[in-house]
Design a protein around this nucleic acid. Structure first.
Length: 274
DNA sequence: AGCAGGACCTGATGGC
DNA sequence: TGCCATCAGGTCCTGC
């Protein structure tokens, strides 16, 4: 569920509150959320350590601690990180509860239990395979038309599959892929090597534009996503194609369609997207 | 190398 | 009301 804009929104919320705070307690109700080291090791080891700052890479959140260790959290489909001033009422999906020295609570809440938590020395972040394999951040200069074009030419699969591949560009998921491809006028099932340099320039601009606007709107809430204060995002009100199957295209009025592409349900305008 | 498909989980929704 | 199938924003593993 959370893609780059949602994870970035949560990061900014946490950054307001957690730097300088020290963990006092960790309660783990579902051990499966903890990947490395063990639930026991986190419970024993984290209390007493201080948060320096919170970073993001792709859809990963990185809590840099003062002792050069890092807690890494990936929310996958339904994960939430919720901040409270005091211990709140917990439900059955509240899998990990972190308490801080000012009594603030951070709850890792995850209905589908796909989310993952690691705590590692900064030097051992390579253990987190997805994280160390991430491609460039889409909102940096490193991600540009040239890079996109060169990469697209080298591959034979569909453009949508390429954009969802986190080792090619970090942080895009199903919603923002569909939105960016619509803005760029490219069908999601086009073979990536058929896309011209000019179209790549459009696509590169579209990706940056849609992500920036979605961050401004604090992400997209369709069902599960909440920011760290429990609030909805607002970008669902600005979606052009995602979840609008059968409705008129906002640009040309044709009926939008949905088709399974690269294993994911994909939304597009058969008229505007070539 | 790179792709498709299944697995990991729970809940919501729609048809009968 | 119950049962079943289908769908869901992500990633990892296996096998081709």
């Amino acid at each position: 569920m959370p893609e780059l804009p949602e994870v970035e929104t949560i990061r900014r919320d946490l950054e307001q509150v957690l730097p300088g705070r020290t963990f006092t307690d960790v309660k783990i109700n579902y051990n499966g959320s903890i990947k490395e080291p063990s639930a026991y090791a986190i419970k024993k080891g984290l209390p007493g350590r201080q948060v320096d700052f919170i970073d993001r890479r792709g859809k990963y959140l990185l809590f840099y601690l003062h002792d050069s260790t890092v807690m890494v959290i990936h929310l996958r489909m339904t994960g939430r990180l919720l901040l409270f001033r005091d211990m709140p009422a917990l439900d059955k999906h509240s899998h990990v509860i972190f308490t801080f020295d000012n009594h603030a609570c951070l709850i890792f809440h995850d209905i589908r239990k796909f989310g993952t938590i690691y705590w590692l020395p900064e030097k051992r972040l390579d253990i987190v395979k997805g994280l160390s394999a991430l491609g460039p951040e889409p909102l940096t200069e490193e991600f540009n038309t040239n890079y996109l074009y060169r990469t697209a030419k080298k591959r034979r699969g569909q453009i949508k599959g390429m954009l969802l591949n986190q080792s090619i560009v970090a942080g895009l998921g199903n919603i923002y892929c569909d939105e960016a491809l619509f803005l760029a006028g490219i069908r999601p099932d086009r073979n990536s090597d058929s896309i011209s340099a000019e179209e790549c320039a459009k696509l590169c601009r579209a990706i940056k534009e849609v992500l920036k606007k979605a961050i401004e709107k604090r992400g997209t809430t369709r069902s599960d996503y909440r920011d760290a204060l429990g609030n909805y995002g607002l970008f669902q009100n600005h979606l052009q194609v995602y979840g609008r199957t059968g409705k008129p295209c906002l640009a040309c009025g044709s009926m939008l369609v949905r088709k399974k592409i690269a294993g994911r349900s994909s939304h597009f305008c058969p008229q505007c997207q070539k």
